[in-house]
Design a protein around this nucleic acid. Structure first.
Lengths: 353, 353
DNA sequence: CTGAAAGCGCTTACAG
DNA sequence: CTGAAAGCGCTTACAG
């Protein structure tokens, strides 16, 4: 019934307007040098026919190659998280490479601010058509953003964001809300005068707004829901890893029923396994391989997860939609806050998370 | 660096093999009438060049139109669930219509087995290239599956599945596991001798294996985790809706701390709101509009949800991958089991669930 | 068994 | 300001 040859393409428009296809193309893409009269005539016909360009033909005919650049932290054994956004980026790449898009990936070291500067400069030199990056270093990221804008290169943030920037879009977490939700789960397990420990595993907490937001989220949940127990914050620097066991042990007593780790929980979980979990409910972040083990053996009860794979995937697709398909992009895109447990993690492993 | 004109297409192969493009095409797609010698030569060159056909050009040149058929229950005010898989199907449709795929949707009435028969016959008459359907009526679905196989039409199940069929694939829930997870969440809230009510809202429960699986999942969780309380099953037929309030009220007493509704929870939630929730933890299924209200006002604590939108989306894409891209399809695809609460539902509303 | 040619719906020099 | 023509990487009759 619906024939592929229903004719609504540029050829048909040209025929109706009694002009050549080239002229239609000129008005469609504002290449100028068209009289106002023909311009209007063509535009009207397009509207009547509800013309939608055939993107396959478009990409096939065009010799324009789109170059995307990606700048994210490199992942490591210690910090496997960034493997997942990269996976999403690669998934998207596979889908759109047929459309003449190439993606060049740049990685920086989270412990080395210079690596961020260096890589970002490299990117600018390569003059990409669009950029996706993770603005972990605040100052440097703002500067980089400014340079992108100056070079008229659209840029998209992933995983975390910066206020008042001209980023085309953001794909990532709402960290505060994630902490808030963790509070709800925790509260199910708490009695009237229970105690909860919030553990931030970082030095210089100011550099990790994610962690602070998560803590605040949980504290707010308790405040809004009349929890009468005690909430203790425990800040431990990664340097103190050797003493970790003792530090935690020293904090837990008989009323402690909850332990909320505002980052990946596996290192803490390892120590808890030695100490003994007791009636502790333990929550942490991200479905990474090291966490998985402790989810499986029951040490970790909940992992909060914000679709790291999807973040990367959607960010690349947004850039594609913006540049190639000329579509409107939504500026703020928060990922669903997922609750992962021993009972459902299987279904999150190989899908697009 | 990577030039679009790196030449690895069919033209290049033809040049290297000293044959015409048509011949290359013949061996690539086994259209026969090629001598074994040239065949081998061409295949080797393809391997050397790691030839990947340009699907854009392929679809553009071909006048083959793929017709997909979809058969799912129609959604209604009473049963809004099926709106969501349909949404996913439409999302997928938008993405692939450029590739010359048309999707025709057929709907049946869950209360009318004849409508299923009628629509499924219509589908066969239209001779589609592939079918996605929800096998809600067991017997009829098996018969339909057989006919599809006989006509060599690949078919994919969504939402629920049937054993021992030759379906190309399945996208849907693992209902048992969803109930198991609900058990975990419930158990957080329970004390040693608490009581839990499992409410099945259906007549002739045998027709709703989903509900029975969910109940079994929760019961098993408790059994595996040494819950010492009491679990009561309450089967209520939709005809009894007027007495719903009294029926529930009669079952709740001071030790009841959990209410697990094995389907959409809004009707029960409405009555609970009148009765007063007390310390009841209430769980139900699916993030539908009527449920949303009771999630927001705190009557419903958890909704289990298995990505209905994604089910439809992925099923269509699988058919596309199979028929158009000739890719391998995984047979069993369970959706992530999502836990939705007042604190995170916002992020599930407009995304691909 | 094999090849020349037209065409899918666009873009892009080039010529006027 | 406008049009004719070649070409993107394929498929598909058609002719031999």
């Amino acid at each position: 019934m619906i024939e592929k040859s229903e004719k609504t393409g540029i050829t048909e428009i040209a025929r109706l307007a009694k002009v050549s296809k080239a002229t239609v193309d000129r008005v469609l893409y504002n290449r100028g040098r068209v009289s106002e009269d023909t311009r209007e005539k063509i535009l009207n016909i397009c509207k009547d026919l509800n013309y939608q360009p055939n993107i396959l033909a478009q990409r096939l005919a065009s010799d324009k190659v789109y170059k995307f650049a990606v700048l994210i932290p490199k992942y490591s054994r210690d910090n496997p998280y960034w493997k997942y956004p990269l996976k999403g980026i690669e998934n998207a790449e596979e889908e759109i490479e047929n459309y003449g898009v190439t993606i060049k990936k740049y990685f920086y070291d989270l412990k080395d601010i210079h690596s961020f500067r260096k890589e970002s400069l490299q990117i600018l030199t390569s003059k990409p058509d669009g950029i996706v990056f993770a603005p972990e270093f605040k100052r440097e990221s703002k500067e980089f953003s400014k340079k992108c804008a100056h070079n008229k290169i659209p840029y998209i943030y992933i995983d975390s964001t910066l206020p008042k920037q001209h980023n085309l879009s953001y794909f990532g977490q709402n960290t505060y809300q994630g902490g808030y939700l963790a509070g709800k789960l925790m509260s199910l397990h708490l009695k009237r005068y229970s105690e909860v420990i919030i553990l931030n595993f970082a030095n210089e907490l100011e550099n990790y707004p994610h962690f602070m937001d998560r803590e605040k989220g949980m504290r707010d949940y308790f405040a809004h829901n009349n929890f009468h127990g005690k909430i203790t914050t425990l800040n431990i620097s990664p340097d103190q890893e050797i003493e970790l066991k003792e530090l935690i042990k020293g904090k837990i007593h008989h009323r402690t029923r909850g332990l909320f780790i505002t980052s990946s929980a596996h290192k803490v979980a390892r120590q808890i396994q030695k100490i003994g979990k007791g009636r502790l409910l333990i929550q942490g972040y991200d479905l990474t391989t090291p966490n998985l083990k402790y989810l499986e053996n029951g040490i970790i009860d909940f992992l909060i997860c914000q679709k790291p794979v999807t973040q990367g995937y959607l960010a690349i697709n947004a850039l594609f939609d913006h540049l190639v398909q000329k579509k409107e992009i939504q500026k703020e895109n928060f990922m669903p806050i997922e609750i992962i447990t021993k009972e459902n993690y299987q279904y999150y492993l190989d899908s697009n998370n």
